[in-house]
Amino acid sequence: MRAKYVLSEVFLGLWRNVTMTIAMIITMAVSLSMLGASLLLYWKVQDMQDYFNTKVEMSVFLKTGFTQDQKQQLATELNNDNRVAKLQFESQNQAYQRFRTEFKDAKDLVDSTKPEALPASFRVKLKDPHQYAEVQADYKGKPGVESIVNQQQTLDKIFSVLNGIQNLALVVAIVQGLAALLLVANTIQVAAYSRRREVGIMKLVGASNWFIQLPFVLEAVFAGLIGAIISFVVLAVAKAFLLDKTLSGIFTAGIIPPISWNDILLTLPLLLLVAAVISAVTGWVTLRFRLRT
């Protein structure tokens, strides 16, 4: 009976105040979508970092006219450097072969490039991917070295863009979250006001505090959960139509690992939890101020 009473109060309350309820759900949904998006981005950036850390290399390109002495000297130095995990020399000819296979679709480009145009290089792999900048600086001015290209730098640029997007999503999530918070507080106050007679009598006859407050808190939690489900649908639709269709090129190129349905599904319990906790806490705190004794 009590459960039935509480539930009917919840739905009656939400319905009586339906415009506010809708506003609350929409704000909640936007906030949670952004939260979900930034969460997905965060996971992806972690994945990428782990993935590329095992792959990233540094290329030490040699001047066209380098001497065997210079090459030998560099090889010894790099071999003795205990930061280096793997070292491989690529001659001009090997570089040309690789160039031809990599660009076999661009026949004109391959035809117009002579083997001498491609520099010989040392391909260096480090034990600790964070040391590339340091090692790069150490070898920059060595005799015979033309330039050093560090893949980590390129990756860092990609990561900083992704981090920027993630932070932006997080900021929007927080701002919208605040708006949702205020709407929850307001909705509950309006609900409490519209039922002040009942609340007054309940207090007078000694209904327990949780019994008085539960319908209001559940109202907020219910709206929050609907918001979470909507935000989940938004994320799923965004994956299906935006990521899988429009941006599929990036994923197939292997630069960014694709966001799987598993990842999307994993956000649902988190979004539900965040929505429920935020609504419940806000509702409860609001009522503490409104319904005192």
Binding site: M1, R2, Y5, A207
Partner: peptide
């Protein structure tokens, strides 16, 4: 009845 129900008395 309301006064009874809200303090948990059965219907």
């Amino acid at each position: 009845a309301f006064a009874l129900e809200v303090i948990g008395k059965s219907r």
